[in-house]
Every structure is written in structure tokens, then in C-alpha cells.
Design a protein around this nucleic acid. Sequence first.
DNA 1: ACACTACCTCAAGCTAACTTTAGGTCAACA
DNA 2: TGTTGACCTAAAGTTAGCTTGAGGTAGTGT
Lengths: 151, 151
Amino acid sequence: MSDKKLIDANLAVGFVAKRSGVKVSTLHFYESKGLIRSWRNNGNQRRYKPDVLRRIAVIKAAQTMGITLEDIKQTLSTLPEQRTPTKQDWAALSKVWQTQLDERIQYMQRLRERVNGCIGCGCLSMAKCPIYNKDDYLGEDQSGAVLLERD
Amino acid sequence: MSDKKLIDANLAVGFVAKRSGVKVSTLHFYESKGLIRSWRNNGNQRRYKPDVLRRIAVIKAAQTMGITLEDIKQTLSTLPEQRTPTKQDWAALSKVWQTQLDERIQYMQRLRERVNGCIGCGCLSMAKCPIYNKDDYLGEDQSGAVLLERD
DNA sequence: ACACTACCTCAAGCTAACTTTAGGTCAACA
DNA sequence: TGTTGACCTAAAGTTAGCTTGAGGTAGTGT
């Protein structure tokens, strides 16, 4: 019977890889980083619980949002260790990322406005644009960096 | 007189570094990547035209928007080579990046909706969520990857 | 029993965007 | 004239997020 792993709900690494769309090496890598977990069978091969699939999907989704593996790991660590995570558990995660996404979107929108008013008009420093005013005559007095600042 | 470089409008690398807020090594690096240009004096030291400062500011601004150096190089290459870029030249650049920013923002907003409707509700694949439906009983028939797709 | 595929580990390689280090030259000022 | 400090090059190191390769074991099908 070829679905033994499926019925037992002990998934082999190759199966998880195929199912989740990531490479086996990526699963090894995620495990080494503490993002997913597995146990070993007698022959030292990895076995996974089915919910690893959701975990991987969530990791990938979060990455698409531009969240780093380190941050994802942090957020995932809020999931329960003992029991299989429930709908509510995952929902809590999504709230965290939704908020982060909202912030990012707002940041991008602020940026967009600045680009509009700033590179566009020839001014890059918002307030009093040293670069634009002093392109040819550079005084010694103003020495700070004049870039768009993050926040 | 210590402002010789300033009055001559031939900027030394250290001055440009201090003024733009990036390290000398970064300027070397940008030059090696073709993002900025310089010529050499008799002693083989780099000299820059003042408009390199704006160029660097623009590079940094574009990076903040998440644009890669390679793409920035592409866009910068639309600036005139012969004459010093005008306000209008820079304005044209900003339009390109504004458009890219708009796309990014839209993408993030689409993502946000998906996170909302998908991780939140327990479904990750939008349409018919194989992961959610098959967490315990995994059929052999559905084998595709089930992640949030980009576009 | 034998082959073939899946799996294992550890180390090295890859891209982006820089920084750091090493060993040496040039320029400015007292 | 001497000694700092600024500059030069080339190569190696850094972080993130993986992939590839080498050399070896395990599991499955005939």
C-alpha cells in the first residue's frame, strides 16, 4: 500500500516537499532554523505531522509579505507547542501580519508622496533640501546626510 | 584654502562620502557597478562632479522603495550622459519609480485582503483550499503546491 | 538478492549589497 | 622634511535564504 505515510499521518520529507512546493533542502534548512520540527524513524529519516504543511504555507505567505524568516519564527513561536494549532491560533497569527502589512502599506504611501513632492520637484531632503540648493556652491556648515529618512 | 575642491566642483571621495552619508567603500562599490562615475587626478585619486550627490541621494531613495541596484542602474541610465541632468530629467525618473511604488502598494493591498480572507479563516489557497480540507486525510489526486501565488 | 530511489550529513557555493582587511601610495601641513 | 591622514587596489568576509555536491545509508519493488 503506497499511502501508508498518509494514513499514519507521518509524512516523509519528500512527500512534504512535493505537497508544499518547496525543496527537500529547504525543509532541512527551515528545520535547522527552528521554523519547523520533525522526529526521526528507526532509519534516521525525518517524519512530520500533517500540520507542518500549513506551517510551511504560512511561512511562504509571510515571506511574500516581505517578512524575514527570523520574524516569522518569532511569530510562529506564539503557536501552541503541545496541541495541534486550531483555526483560532492561525487567525491570531494572521492578525499580527495584517498589522505589519498595514504599516508597510502606509510607509509605502508616505514614500510615494515624498517621491512625488521631492525627487519630482528636484528636492530630496524634504525640509530645506541642501542638495538642491547647494549643488554648485557647497558650504562647510551643513554636513549631515541628506537622504529620505525612514520615519 | 581648504574648500578648493568645493570651488573647483571636483569632489574628492571622502567629501562625497561625508556629504551623502554613505561610506567611501560604498562609493567604490557603486562605481564598480556602474551606478556612479568619476575621473582620476594625477595621483590616481577619484574626483566627482557635484551632481553625483544627487545621484547618490536618488539611489538611496530608490532603495528605500525596495528597488534593486540593478533596476536603479537601468532607470538611471535614462539620464543624459553629456549634460548635467535637469530638474525635468530627475522628474522623469521619479515618475518611473512612482509607478513602481503604486504597483507595489496595490500588490500589498491585494495581499492584505488575502491574508484577511485566507490565513485568518483557515484557508490558504484561495479557491478551494486543499490544505485546510485535507489536513488529516490527504488524497493522492491533488498534488500541486498550495501557496499564495504572486499574481 | 539486487537495483533503484529516497534519505542522511556536512561543507561549500550562490546572489545582493556592502564592509573589512591588508599592504601600499599620495597629499597636506607644521 | 617628516608624519599624519586621505586615498588606492584586490581579495576576503558578512547576512539572508537557500541550493548543490559529495559520499554514504535506508527502504521499496521485482
